[in-house]
Design a protein around this nucleic acid. Structure first.
Lengths: 202, 202
DNA sequence: TATAAAAAGTGACTAAAGTCACAACTATAA
DNA sequence: TTATAGTTGTGACTTTAGTCACTTTTTATA
């Protein structure tokens, strides 16, 4: 844990290690539902989460949560005893530190570095949301697809992305056919190479 | 100021009164530009701000900042000596408290209630952005227009909104003709009444 | 009151994205 | 090997929104 939070005092690290549970969640598992009361705030130690919202069986990816990052939305909900506004699921086998919401409230007063952590997380998510918004309004679907693929490539640190067209469609709140067609077009423009279940970015 | 921040200690109120400037800005004035370094963090005492982003002469309203609220985006930028990601302008004559960014950093450690304030602001803006996103992806333009009008009505506490079609178009990053047509359609559906320069919500 | 500027109305067209229907391909497990 | 489910390709069509060109209305003010 010391590697993941280098600016935490040893005392705080010991406290967290003693008082918080660490769970390992398999891939493709929902860990937070919209409307659910938040008792514990997840911090990703290892792995990757996908945070999204839904409306009438359409989804939209909001952002990813990777190692050493937390879900500020559940932080917000947890602190004020409220419910989650978003969904979160694992995209790979993920190790998660669970901070008990009620106790965290007290810890925030004792350990200012926790405040710093969550302020940083808020800032990051705000920037992510802004980025998502700007992509949606100001760019056409082909650019959005390309941008999403680049994000995925960065996250998994590879040029070859293993994902189905349907999953991309879900991330962008569109339909599978639209994605398939756009990918074909991007392939013709030499921006990527398609194969079954995977896309190589050029 | 005591009315606006009831949970601040008197000591803090006195400090803020002594150390911070309060300015009065006329309507329709830009107070923050994208890319600008943030030296002071604005807190609205009275009035209304419009926060938006742009791309190639298109705009998009992100949210409003009303009395007793602050701009967390400039908070984020101010604290880490960065630049603003957004634009802000006044929508009416507005009184603004200016917190000097560098000193605020120290105050945050001394007065935990300041942390609480900014955490609340972050949470509020995150919710606003999420709302903006969901409106954009999951709803058609007519619903977005209606929703925007309802927001404006709530903000100004009246059913009659004084605004031009062009201004609505700017808020929604679309064109004036689209708004004009949709307003006509909504009028036919008895959801509002149009007159020159103003719209009455039914 | 005359007139210019701003605001709003509207038809005709184009572009982008969503929908439907169905064919074809690929991987896996019985 | 052969079902079978999941995945991808594609044509035809519809819907929604954006664009262009122009007219009409309203407001402010010289």
């Amino acid at each position: 844990m010391k590697n993941i939070f280098p600016f935490f005092k040893s005392e705080l690290i010991i406290l967290l290690t003693r008082e918080c549970e660490i769970i390992t969640v398999p891939t493709q598992q929902e860990i937070l539902r919209k409307g659910q009361y938040v008792k514990v705030i997840p911090v990703v130690l290892k792995g990757l989460l996908r945070v999204y919202t839904t409306h009438e069986d359409k989804e939209l990816l909001l952002y990813h949560i990777k190692s050493s990052e937390s879900c500020v939305m559940s932080f917000a909900a947890g602190i004020k005893n409220g419910t989650s506004e978003i969904y979160a699921q694992t995209l790979e086998k993920t190790e998660i530190l669970l901070l008990p919401a009620q106790r965290l409230k007290k810890w925030l007063e004792q350990y200012p570095e926790l405040n710093v952590l969550f302020n940083l997380q808020y800032e990051m998510r705000y920037a992510d949301l802004l980025h998502t918004i700007e992509n949606m309004v100001f760019h056409k679907m082909d650019q959005r697809v390309l941008s999403l693929l680049h994000d995925k490539a960065t996250l998994s640190n590879t040029k070859i992305i293993k994902i189905s067209h349907q999953a991309l469609a879900d991330d962008l709140a569109t339909s599978r056919e639209v994605i398939s067609r756009i990918l074909k077009k991007l392939e013709n423009e030499n921006k990527l190479v398609l194969s079954h279940q995977s896309i190589k970015i050029l």
